[in-house]
Amino acid sequence: MAESYIVSGNPHWHAPVSTKRLMLDVIIALCPAVIVSFLYYGWSEILVMAESIAFCVLLEWAITRFLMKKPSTIGDLSAVVTGMLLAMNLPSGISWWIVLIGAVVSIGVAKMTFGGLGQNIFNPAITGRVFLLVSFPAQMTTWPVPSGFIHNVDAFSGATLLQQVKILGAADADALVSLQTLFTNIGGSAGEISAIALLAGWLYLVCRRVIKPWITLSIFATVACVAAVFHAVNPELYTGALFNLLTGGVVLGACFMATDYVTSPMSTWGGVVFGFGIGFILMMIRYFGSYPEGMSFAILLMNMAVPLINMAFHQKKYGRK
């Protein structure tokens, strides 16, 4: 018989779901996409991934240890997730110092200045990516020719499909994308190359009840609807629904970036509105903006609106109107 028993308020046990476990699930869900991009781009992709994760984790450790003088928070694995997501937004073979700058912006600026996990307003990985995109446009949009183990890529060296739109025009670009694209590949960064791998990871998260599907579905639906309407009005100028769903960062952004707990609304309907906002802004940027791709900007803009959305959408309370 023990000398003294524990006393605490109810409940007396806990669901086996911790922050660490949730982050581990996200890491697992990202693995298919990582493997596919490894198969396409080879070891250089793994190198970028390793650099990114290492920089992010080290930075978080150093900042908590030396600047905030708090116990380190790297154990919750959130820095690993940020590192992976950042790497998935970078072209393989990019120089290590660019990765380091990205990590500094992601972890140092976007996450830790706000107080660390749970306090940040903007998605750290996207903030890092956007900073790099604006600062190093050339390096960030130079896609290497796939040099890995699979060579059946309809390689677009130097330009992705979305960039083709600005070069070739909507109609010709549209023709390059079919449902098959889903299964083969899309040129671009690691996170863009295989939609099916990303969707598999997303399904895993939904089935494990790590995330709810509404934000992602809302983005897909909005993108499809907006594109379908514009395409119907003028197919010469505006690309179609399928093209817009499968190109660029839509799948990665909708599945993994927009669903980040911290920077997305909590309620289901809030999530739907959030997703609609992202989809709409994205399409506006694609159709009328000077950048070929706008997923990152769309998510960052909607991140800002999250506190407002949270205020507007509350849970239905029992016994109250």
């Binding site: 003294s4 006393v7 308020g9």
Partner: peptide, 18 residues
């Protein structure tokens, strides 16, 4: 000591409990 408390570090919460 006869017991060990776990939970939020607040005398008020603890006093409510036991």
């Amino acid at each position: 000591r006869t017991n060990t408390y776990q939970g939020v570090q607040s005398c008020k919460a603890k006093a409510w409990l036991y």
